[in-house]
Amino acid sequence: MDTNRRSFLKLGGLCALGLGALPVVDALGKSDLPQVMNNPQALVGKRWAMVVDMKKCWEKGKPGCKDCILACHVTHNVPDIGSIKEEVKWLWTEPFENAFPGQESQFLPTEVMEKPFMVLCNHCAQAPCVRVCPTQATFKRADGITMMDFHRCIGCRYCMAGCPYGARSFNWKDPRNFIKTELNMTFPTRERGVVEKCNFCDERLGVGKIPACVEACKDGCLHFGDLQDPNSEVRKILASHFTIRRKPELGTDPSVYYII
């Protein structure tokens, strides 16, 4: 193409004009109306939290009951990788000494030492994973849920180094071949190379349902509610029971409480 100074300047000016017009277009296209309507049925809260009543679980639950875990895995297409090294975990069990390291003492009741504890993402108010994520792929929602955007995550695994609870799992390989439960078509499966974890069933809260694990527990050992609401179920339980949290000394302010 034959270009001289004059035509180059003309073209450059035109380009600059086009770029300058962009904010004008944005301003004209702006509207105060919300872009997406909220579901009127959605459960709303300021800080979702969970109380896990382990005592009731051990006393009332049938031995080896895994209803809550199964419900979670079915709902979220959680793969069963089958290796300790690459396991993907959303909701699982750990012995007391592993769930609460540093708090075990020699002469605890055998029940506490031997029975399983339910563990999951703590949805910390001061979440280190959110602090370290370089792309905001993991972020805090206004209702306190620590959310994960599978489509933005670059797979750097900084959040896994940051999480003090081992609650984050990376997809070391394609997880789709390892989904052993029936596929839930309403929830995305993941690709390899991204991090995932418990999301407190934000997709269910959005349509007015409580988390799948809470719903699945027939013995009522899992309680879910708004920590900021003084009349919520979780607040009433916290006011009347002694509860503990995992590693509170780290200042992460976990939103999952345990009754032992």
Partner: peptide
């Protein structure tokens, strides 16, 4: 070494697209 460590290297530029000053990795970049 950072690039070969990423699970999703094709999304590397997300670090520029969504700059996050509270992440030390952003400053390291």
């Amino acid at each position: 070494f950072i690039i070969v460590d990423l699970g999703k290297p094709m999304r590397l530029l997300n670090v520029l697209l969504y700059p996050t000053p509270n992440s030390i990795l952003f400053w390291d970049m």
